[in-house]
Structures are given as structure tokens and as C-alpha cells.
């Protein structure tokens, strides 16, 4: 999988592409956690090109969310495809993550 980092003002966007599973979770974890600023991080994980997420991928996203929260920052997800959304729904992640329909909406929520 790929993780492409861009910046929009003070917001870091990580675009996840491909499959986030047991094979790819470790490298994505390094990329995602490495992009978290030490103070007041503001991040969006764009999942519009993410085809699959396994429990290993959920774990990485939750680790990042916890780290962002500990740094008093904000993290949102956007663009979940139906199968990824389903995994979020059944795991309960839909109710604990902030999820926007697309990147524009996510960035607009972080003025």
C-alpha cells in the first residue's frame, strides 16, 4: 500500500492507498505515527483510495488517534469506501472516529 503525505495549511493529510492489513500495517504505522506533530497535531486520513482495512489496520488508526488526542490535537478520517465503512461499522469504530464524506469536507471542518 502507499501512504502519501501532503499539507493543507496547518493540516497534515495522509492519503492511504491499497490494502491496510497484516502485511502493510507496520509500514503504514511508521508513516502515520511519524507524521503526527508533537503538539496540537491536526490530521486527516484520506481513505478514498483505501480498498480494505483489517483489524491490524484498525489498530494502527486507533493508535494514531490516541497519540493525536494525547497531544491535544484533532484527527479525522474521510472518504471511506463501502467495504471499509462496513468494517468500521461492525467494529464500532464509526462511533468513535470523526468521519467526513470526502477530503474537502474534512479540511473545511479544520479551519
Amino acid at each position: 500500500m502507499e501512504a502519501i503525505e501532503t499539507r493543507h495549511g496547518g493540516t497534515v493529510v495522509i492519503e492511504a492507498r491499497g490494502r491496510l492489513d497484516s502485511n502493510t500495517a507496520r509500514s503504514f504505522e511508521e508513516k502515520l505515527l511519524g507524521a503526527i506533530a508533537p503538539a496540537d497535531p491536526v490530521m486527516v486520513v484520506d481513505c478514498s483510495q483505501l480498498d480494505y482495512v483489517s483489524s491490524a489496520g484498525l489498530r494502527v488508526l486507533l493508535m494514531a488517534a490516541k497519540r493525536v488526542k494525547a497531544a491535544k490535537g484533532r484527527l479525522a478520517l474521510c472518504g471511506l469506501k463501502p467495504h471499509v465503512q462496513e468494517v468500521f461499522d461492525v467494529s464500532g469504530f464509526s462511533s468513535i472516529f470523526v468521519i467526513h464524506p470526502n477530503r474537502a469536507a474534512a479540511l473545511a471542518a479544520f479551519p
Partner: peptide
């Protein structure tokens, strides 16, 4: 356990949950 916040959510243990739910 059902969780309502990022802080409360355990890091691991979702694999078997997915199997049960799906």
C-alpha cells in the same frame, strides 16, 4: 466492551469481533 471514546478503546482484539459480527 462497547466503547464510546478513543481514549476508552482497547488497541487490540478486533479480529475476533469482526468474525463474530460478520
Amino acid at each position: 466492551p462497547a466503547v464510546s471514546t478513543i481514549a476508552d478503546a482497547p488497541i487490540s482484539g478486533r479480529g475476533i469481533l469482526l468474525i463474530r459480527r460478520l
